[in-house]
Nucleic acid binder design. Sequence first.
DNA 1: CTGAAAGCGCTAACAG
DNA 2: CTGTTAGCGCTTTCAG
Lengths: 344, 344
Amino acid sequence: MTGKGARGGRKTGPSIADVARLAGVSAQTVSRVSTGTGPVRPETRDRVMRAIEQLGYTPNRAARALRDGRYGTIGLLARRFDRTGEALTTDAVLRAAEERDYSVTLLRVPDTSAKGWEPAARRLQHQTVDGIIIIRAEGGAGDQLALPATMPVAVSDSRPHGRYPHVASDEFTGARMAVDHLLGLGHRVVHHLGGPLDSEPARMRAAGWRTALAEAGVLTPPDAAIGDWSSESGYAAGTVLAADPAVTSVFCANDEMAFGLMLALHEAGRSVPADVSVVGFDDIALSRFTSPPLTTIRQDFPEMGRELVRLLLAQMETPRPERVEDGIVPLELVVRATTAPPRA
Amino acid sequence: MTGKGARGGRKTGPSIADVARLAGVSAQTVSRVSTGTGPVRPETRDRVMRAIEQLGYTPNRAARALRDGRYGTIGLLARRFDRTGEALTTDAVLRAAEERDYSVTLLRVPDTSAKGWEPAARRLQHQTVDGIIIIRAEGGAGDQLALPATMPVAVSDSRPHGRYPHVASDEFTGARMAVDHLLGLGHRVVHHLGGPLDSEPARMRAAGWRTALAEAGVLTPPDAAIGDWSSESGYAAGTVLAADPAVTSVFCANDEMAFGLMLALHEAGRSVPADVSVVGFDDIALSRFTSPPLTTIRQDFPEMGRELVRLLLAQMETPRPERVEDGIVPLELVVRATTAPPRA
DNA sequence: CTGAAAGCGCTAACAG
DNA sequence: CTGTTAGCGCTTTCAG
């Protein structure tokens, strides 16, 4: 014989063949027992079970994935995972995925620009994922994502994508609720501390603010301050706003910035809510427990996670469906102690 | 011919064979180009590259994993991922894993008890992971984890495990720094709001508090209040502590509880830091921006993530080494505005 | 009810 | 420098 061929790859743990050998049956039978497929005589099943136990056999997922052409894994893409919004979404997606028996792999995309997203997304495709959920807190042109055409995608963002189905909170309405609340308290005008300009959620919140003001007859709203979601940026904006006596109320695009803003206000000697009312957005866990507790717009993260996973799996079951509906999650105003009627 | 055999599994995307056919070369050559292994004539390489481009070929990771006997993936186990501590650790681990070209799969373990951890851990083994990092914020008897003997594990916890290497902040020293700071300000005694009793980090922080007090001559420290890390529990403890005029300073086992405590203090008319000083633990992003900004002990999460990954990969390279050193990460006192000398 | 064969896609070893 | 072969572990036919 011509000694050709080559040994295959590395062995990992006990394989189905090892179990079969020990139990004195065919690999086939072991598979049947292991997967619960097909008829097996109770006697045989017992023998196999014992062998499985004894060897500590667990099925090799790579082999199964190779055979089935799927991994049972969802990739979760975001710029970072250490912020409140991402963490809450991640946890929510994870729970929803679990329910459907999927696991979740994280991929961080360092760069905001489309250039940053794409290589990471490609890397993700080389990873073991069947579909991708993208959290887009900011970073504009995601339409250029250039993912493989067959890769199912769902996006957490505030606006239809054209290409991929998306899920979003009803940011526009949420912002209006915040502003209407302030207006209802008697404020003549509401200032705004917005998120980054390349963030769609930030834009929607600003639009809601502007619209609510317009409907109340304030046709030329004050300039909006721009932050980057961080408390630092809220603090910076706060030092400016604090100096303007015309400011009696501020609607902030997220809670973190609201806290930074309030600290600046406080340091400038303007008290909340007596001198200026503040409304946040998100309702993070801490907002209930700051002094004073923050009035804010609550996002339903668990529901978003569920929607995201639902939309993604729908695509995986029916690849490239003609049209996938988007998801929209309602928001809720939570009135706490940072809002009050204006002085005098 | 006897029509035996069976078709294999489902096709996913273009395979190496498809590329080979199109480029008019052997599968081997494609593999060589794709992996950058072995010599290929520039001409041939170009032809292959074009074919790859044209078909949008990307290697099938399941097949590679099957062959190599490894996945390039780390599993990250935690009770939940929506809290600050877990989110910071997750992000840190993710960054560290990326550097070493690993991806990270999340697994949530709903149950605190060892009973909850084990099935989840088994499930993880059935997942596509080469090793596991466990974040143990609470939930005691992790020694009974019963993971497969060959699975590398690293634990984020405060105390040697016996079984698995662990990484932890130097909680004991951190707690002492907090208490010494308060004592140095002139407080006669320092109260403590601790974490859950089944949490090792919580126990270490309480031990550090007790030791620092003892060294200062306070041999019978006041009873510690017990929380569950949440602001809610901090608030509850705060309502009790606020009623006790002997309380002039409190060291809290984390920042979230400190915020809850301070709100309760505030509502009871006791001001921070004039009436009572408060120190937290963690230094979460918001702590700098509350009013007043929180004095706290800063944890170095990125460093912890790096250590955790380093320890895990060390085991994977040298399976079951005789002894793996544990990691300990230093802590830092950050003095802000919630601490001051006692009144009078 | 059980066994044999074949093939998912990839790559190490060997032969040219 | 390139091609052939074999095999990683699993599961779906098909035959017995």
